[in-house]
Design a protein around this nucleic acid. Structure first.
Length: 389
DNA sequence: CAATCGTGGTT
DNA sequence: TAACCAAGATT
């Protein structure tokens, strides 16, 4: 009969065995990624924020461009927000960019430009939650703090056959403490990244490569044949459909753009004038109402140009796009949130992917009109973030 | 706690 | 193809 002290010691030995195998595996099979060629806390920080809910392959080109454009924390802090959003264009979850920008300014003003290395200060930075704080502290400073992302949740849930919903804070806490207890002294950076790499390349969500796993013998989920059913995770809800209207308003070869509010969906990015279309009214009426709210002038809604569908995580936009004239014959002055944009200037404005889709559809439909011919729109598109089609 | 917040790739 | 998923944070 063993006493609790012996069980605890046994468990500690098992954890050390797992950690050792993981480190050994990581040394041979860890991925060579751009942000792993440095230990600069700013570089690590930027990569971790970009990687939030975003695939490595997607992030790499953004990361490279970002470091060329904002080589230092001071460079980022000194840049205008519009330029920061432009660099983030197409990456999604744009509050990450605005939070990172604000936090960079905070580090410059409060910490003299050096990223703090204590958990409390790092966690207070905008956009830095439990995972990102752990990642910065462990990877950049080798401090013994867990970095529990989706990979780690999955790996640990399988390793210990944890069947509780990983979305629950209580489950995350259990897993975080298991990781903390497992961390080998002085190897925090490698250990956290080893867990993530194992999840990304071996212990994948579907079709995990258990036969190649360095910790298969220690995996309770594998032993019990339950890897396929772990981790347990609630189902996503269906996105809510939203009818939208948008207007192509031209004047002297320029296109009218408006900037979205500073909070909420696609905050601070630019779009064609438009908005939600309340159900039960014609799209033309809805567009007139939306344009009245925005500009306080009567609008003449012209021909229907294109329809664009765009799905977000939690909603789907069905956009009906019309030509429209404001006034008519009345001046719409520019403001900070309202600009007449020549085609060759479109590339200077941060536009969300949904708006690029609208422009592409207009181009595809060969929408006639001064300054809106195909060549101009195409050059404006490719003038921004280059992307294969 | 549950909803919000993007986009692109995979199955 | 629709559903799922990816190095989450904020409110």
């Amino acid at each position: 009969m063993r006493n609790p002290g012996q069980d605890e010691q046994q468990e500690r030995r098992r954890a050390a065995e797992i950690a050792g195998r993981l480190l050994e595996w990581y040394g041979r099979h860890g991925r060579d990624l751009p942000w792993r060629r440095t230990r600069d806390p700013y570089h690590i920080w930027v990569s971790e924020v970009m990687l939030q809910q975003t695939r490595v392959e997607t992030v790499i080109p953004y990361y490279e461009r970002w470091m060329a454009q904002f080589p230092t924390l001071e460079a980022l802090a000194g840049a205008p927000e519009e330029q920061v959003l432009k660099a983030w264009e197409g990456l999604g979850y744009y509050s990450r960019a605005r939070n990172l920008h604000q936090a960079a300014r905070e580090v410059v003003s409060r910490y003299g430009g050096s990223v703090p290395d204590d958990p409390e200060a790092v966690s207070r930075l905008k956009g830095v939650g439990p995972y990102t704080a752990g990642a910065i502290l462990s990877i950049a400073f080798n401090r013994p703090v867990p970095a529990v992302d989706g990979n780690v949740l999955r790996v640990i849930a399988r390793l210990y056959a944890i069947a509780d919903d990983i979305a629950l804070p209580a489950t995350r806490k259990v897993i975080t403490e298991l990781v903390r207890a497992m961390m080998p002294a002085g190897r925090s950076a490698d250990f956290n990244q080893a867990l993530m790499d194992l999840g990304a390349t071996i212990c994948t969500p579907r079709s995990p490569r258990c036969l190649l796993c360095p910790v298969r013998e220690a995996c309770e989920g594998f032993r019990a044949g339950r890897v396929g059913g772990l981790p347990v995770k609630g189902k996503a809800r269906a996105p809510r459909p939203v009818e939208r209207v948008a207007a192509v308003v031209e004047q002297d070869g320029r296109l009218l753009l408006t900037r979205r509010p500073p909070d909420g969906l696609l905050a601070g990015l630019w779009e064609l004038p438009g908005g939600d279309a309340p159900p039960g009214r014609s799209p033309e009426d809805a567009l007139r109402a939306v344009l009245w709210d925005a500009f306080r002038v009567e609008a003449v809604v012209g021909e229907h140009l294109v329809d664009v569908t765009h799905a977000f995580t939690h909603l789907v936009w069905y956009i009906r796009c019309y030509r429209a004239e404001l006034g008519p014959g009345c001046e719409i002055p520019e403001t900070p949130d309202r600009r007449w944009v020549a085609p060759e200037e479109l590339k200077d404005y941060p536009l969300p992917t949904v708006q690029r889709k609208v422009l592409a559809a207009l181009h595809e439909a060969r929408t006639p009109g001064v300054g809106l011919n195909g060549r101009d729109i195409r050059s404006a598109e490719t003038g921004g973030v280059m992307r294969e089609r």
